[in-house]
Write a protein that binds this DNA or RNA. Sequence first.
DNA 1: CATTTTAACTTCTATATACAAGTTTATAAC
DNA 2: GTTATAAACTTGTATATAGAAGTTAAAATG
Lengths: 249, 249
Amino acid sequence: MGIPATAKIDRKSYEPAYAQLAKILKRQISDGIYRPGDRLPSEAKLCEAYDVSPMTVRRVVNMLVEQGVAVAEQGRGTFVKPLGLGTAVFHLDALQQFFDDAENTRVKLLETRIVSADERTARKLSISQNQRVVFIRRLISQNGIPSLYHREYLIYDPERPIIEAEMEVTSLRGLFSGASESTLKWGNLLIEATILRDEEARVLNSQSGAAAFRLEHIFYDFDNQPLSLGWFISPGDRLHFKTSVGIQE
Amino acid sequence: MGIPATAKIDRKSYEPAYAQLAKILKRQISDGIYRPGDRLPSEAKLCEAYDVSPMTVRRVVNMLVEQGVAVAEQGRGTFVKPLGLGTAVFHLDALQQFFDDAENTRVKLLETRIVSADERTARKLSISQNQRVVFIRRLISQNGIPSLYHREYLIYDPERPIIEAEMEVTSLRGLFSGASESTLKWGNLLIEATILRDEEARVLNSQSGAAAFRLEHIFYDFDNQPLSLGWFISPGDRLHFKTSVGIQE
DNA sequence: CATTTTAACTTCTATATACAAGTTTATAAC
DNA sequence: GTTATAAACTTGTATATAGAAGTTAAAATG
């Protein structure tokens, strides 16, 4: 019967069997041997064809499903998933690239000030309107070119030692890469397209009215209390997001 | 010894044991029982504490790692991962929402025309500059409000039957949700912040110079030949992307 | 005291097995 | 011919087991 093993699994390789089989199947899909909508061989047949145990095949199928390459329907089979734009994701690590090469990147602390929360800040941070917050403005430059403007309101609480650590100019980097920051539990993010206002354009050495991304963030602690509200602003000509859909290569 | 089972697994539940255990562990992390950087109990101890097999625990740990909640280091242990902005992902299915309620959404075909490829189009589609391509302009409106403007250049090849299907006004929806479209294998996506030009503002019933997202796409077939180059443009006040990082709830 | 070796512990891969649950197809019954 | 039944096949869950590979800390050795 049609055992479609186009490649074998090298048991002497350091690459695990499940990774090899996943690669083989994805390659076959990429080559058009299995087209979108087609049914992949059943797990039992894959076991026999590639001489691996059912659990290993199971793992491979799960990987393909999680990667969005296939969909599994109980009792029917596993089918190659057609390309769908809605499944595309773009990663924020494009921003992280700013901090990766520490040599060419400089974080400049423009201002730290204690102010009274305005209406919007108070509402989003779940505090009263007259309560005091720490206002921070930072500018991230790369090779001398300012590319990220950051404004942030921080809850001002003398009992919590967060503020000092947060004020460190280097703390931004840890926020992206996931260093310490063990006081933060989760955050809400919002990306908008906007245009630079006068002050933003001045700081970023750009033109007022130019296209820009705005990333709003609210971070919460382990008591689900808002700790921070802020925005990253980057001119559109200095930042973009790339991604891809479907089966590569 | 410290067996930290704060909840038990209900074997009579329809929810699989691995899902229950994953939920329990995530809840404990969310509650601060295990803080970022802390080591989770070893797999052996989890087996004993929750009375499940090693493979089930293995599966749960893998889930947590894939979800970005924890990191596993061979020989050392599994540790709670601190929140990192760089791990954030934005899903493009925000765009798909436009097509979900078919009643309120209308796709209008503004123009289809056969033109000669200009320099940029020819380069990105890997064709010669004088070669003919199909140019399509579409407008997607929701509740009468135009919210997406789509321009696309399609390879014109009489031998390939793609064009007719692509020209269907409904084909856009299939592109997002992942319907047929079995001729497309993969695509490159680029998201930029831009401002509306005169023609775009006119079509979108907006103002020239307003902030907007631009999503460029290039799709390839199973021979890795470019088939389509196009752009979605949406005013910034009618589209934004939300997501979150860390451990919810 | 410094170094090496050993033991204990960790995650990681892989197999073999059993049964549950859903779908499809062939068979039997009416 | 239509309907019910049964069989075969599919993915899904769960267990028990074995060993590989990496880390850490204690014990042995010099």
